[in-house]
Design a protein around this nucleic acid. Structure first.
Length: 347
DNA sequence: AACTCGGGGAA
DNA sequence: TTCCCAGAGTT
């Protein structure tokens, strides 16, 4: 009886993993659920190379869930600064405190329990439960979608509900019995190092003989990509307000980008024009700091930032304003664009 | 179902 | 520039 495509896929993938997978990462083979969870949260929508140093910092500063749960919001957010998607960090802290209070410090390992934790969705619950307990749940991340779409010829976007179900079902169907931990790791390593988004190594791929995309010349068209909404331009004007050697910062609380981070007081305009006034923050007019236009491109927005300065004799009333010493500025977590600005002016 | 949430590296 | 990354939460 001929080997089915699915059996061939799993067999060859595991063979590749055994013979040719050279990828090693500090959390690979880790059995401490806390550390597995930490690595998975950090790596959501984040490249391994980018998350690596953050993982090391977190493990070093917070070696167990208690250390993390008892740390201050600002300290944890400061450590997360620059990694982006800050709701991950807020949920990280919330989960650590939940685990300490509700589970007495014992991190859950079961898929269903993990799913209830804030910041843990289907992918992360499958990853943690399989890595920590070899539970039979297939991970479906960007790597898996790409590998399955190409090898099996899934000509359907994974973004919508139907597509998601198709990929979930297929991934779960082919998950080899009793080897979910090794297999889940293997398919993601394979996607990251062989079946890459651009310029995959098809020439030497151990699955090439039965790969749909390679044989149908569809490698570059699979997986089917979703259309991205247009980026919106936003114009932010930050003011460096000095009063008696102190400077004012505010925390972003609104439901918007960078929630929870700190920044210099700012006003937003709808065009790149110089704002007519800086009310309600200031009644007098600050001066432009320099001609530098700091831009930062996010997934859905393009941020245009300008910086202004003013030194005041009378302390202005600024909503939720924190007046701190200039040397303390680097103790507060801030958006990257402000970190860049502050680094520039202090040298 | 569609939108929103960062930042960086590579093509 | 554009794409995509060990996705999840909200509307």
């Amino acid at each position: 009886m001929p080997l089915s495509a699915r059996s061939y896929f799993v067999q060859q993938l595991l063979r590749w993993n055994r013979l040719a997978n050279k990828r090693h990462m500090p959390w690979k083979g880790e059995k401490d659920v806390y550390k597995i969870w930490l690595s998975e949260i950090i790596l959501q929508q984040t490249r391994v190379e980018q998350g690596l140093s953050y993982y090391e910092k977190f493990i070093n500063d917070f070696p167990d869930v208690h250390a993390l749960a008892n740390a201050s919001d600002t300290r944890v957010m400061k450590l997360w600064e620059g990694l982006g998607y800050y709701s991950r960090c807020r949920n990280l802290l919330q989960t650590a405190r939940m685990v300490q209070d509700i589970y007495e410090g014992h991190f859950p390992k079961s898929y269903e329990t993990l799913l209830k934790l804030p910041g843990v969705g289907p992918y992360t619950a499958a990853a943690i439960s399989s890595f920590a307990a070899n539970a039979p749940y297939a991970v479906v991340d960007g790597n898996v979608i790409r590998v399955l779409a190409r090898f099996f010829g899934i000509n359907r976007p994974a973004g919508d509900a139907v597509g998601k179900k198709v990929f979930d079902q297929l991934a779960q169907d082919i998950l080899p019995n009793g080897r979910s931990a090794v297999y889940n790791q293997a398919i993601m390593d394979f996607g990251a190092t062989v079946c890459k988004p651009a310029a995959p190594s098809c020439g030497t791929c151990m699955l090439r003989s039965r790969c749909y995309a390679l044989n149908q010349h569809a490698v570059s068209s699979l997986p089917v990509k979703r259309i991205r909404p247009e980026k919106k331009d936003r114009y932010l004007h930050f003011i460096y307000i000095q009063y008696k050697g102190k400077v004012c910062i505010v925390q972003r609380r609104q439901k918007d980008i960078w929630q929870g981070l700190y920044q210099l007081p700012a006003i937003e305009t709808s065009s790149k024009n110089f704002p007519a006034h800086f009310r309600p923050i200031l009644t007098s007019q600050p001066k432009l700091w320099d001609d530098t236009d700091y831009t930062q491109v996010l997934t859905h927005q393009k941020i245009h930032a300008r910086f202004y300065r003013i030194s005041v004799i009378k302390k202005p009333e600024i909503q939720d304003g924190l007046w701190i010493n200039e040397k303390e500025l680097n103790e507060f977590p801030m958006p990257k664009v402000l970190v860049h600005f502050l680094k520039n002016i202090h040298k």
